[in-house]
Design a protein around this nucleic acid. Structure first.
Lengths: 135, 135
DNA sequence: TGGTTAAATAACCTTTTGGTAAAGTATCTG
DNA sequence: CAGATACTTTACCAAAAGGTTATTTAACCA
């Protein structure tokens, strides 16, 4: 039971069975038995997966006689998507080269300010020393 | 050690410490000691987190004397982002209402074909009965 | 050489996770 | 009412995750 939503969302997605269940629910709501049918695991196992998805807010369960129809609730995926999107620049083409270039520049400037030329001494290979608390 | 990349990526992201480490690395490469400094946990714990990130392909570790500078490798996030993006339509505004409308239509049509009026009998509340193997 | 720093590894512990089988709970059906 | 159907809940288990302390490895420094 992870405290923050982002952790719960990513944890829920970190299982192929649960991702497949979401994939199925994207085509429309479904009963638990039907959700379980593609897998070679028992109903209680599926029930647990559904509970994980429900706690993460990724599905909602209704009641219809003996059935508990599940519906997709994709809202938490929005937050996950925007978290990941922070890093888009880092995977988009040419960035690796640009990054390498910028870091090379930065290293040279650091060398120039701490010592006019050559290696100075033992120092950790760091570009920005301030610690972060952001996630 | 999850088999598929997507599972490894989401599992790696399902921890606030690891997400914070990635956040730090987005500002530039860093030594392990420095990465550990914002947290109240021991170095071996950080070492383990870094191993998880490395196995997921989210960081790369170099060598510089005693230091093992870590660099961000965001490529796996691309795959994660596009997986999530499949569901964008489900969280974007108005979709819930549109979905509700479409499913209402569908329900009425089903009722119309199986029985001219009223509830027919016990039948699972399903919109599309074919099981899926997609993730 | 010996000491210090950076980091990984080993051994260990506790909690969580993912699965099972078996029993319990509703709800429909005959 | 007595089944049957659709789940859920309750133990229970093995393995993985997340943390610790203590030890080891490697490189620098005096």
């Amino acid at each position: 039971m992870p405290a923050d939503k982002l952790t719960a969302t990513f944890a829920a997605l970190a299982d192929p069975t649960r991702r497949a269940i979401l994939g199925r629910l994207a085509k429309g709501q479904s009963s638990v038995t039907e959700l379980a049918s593609p897998f070679k695991m028992t109903m209680p196992a599926i029930s647990k997966h559904l509970k994980v998805l429900e706690k993460a807010g990724l599905i909602e369960r209704g009641r219809d006689a003996q059935w508990r129809p599940c519906r997709l609730k994709a809202k938490p995926l929005e937050e996950a998507a925007s978290w990941i999107d922070q890093y888009r620049q880092f995977w988009e083409e040419s960035f690796d080269r640009l990054d390498a270039y910028l870091q090379e520049i930065q290293r040279k400037e650091a060398d120039a300010t701490t010592a006019p030329a050559g290696e100075t001494a033992a120092a950790p290979p760091t570009d920005s020393p301030e610690p972060t608390d952001a996630c």
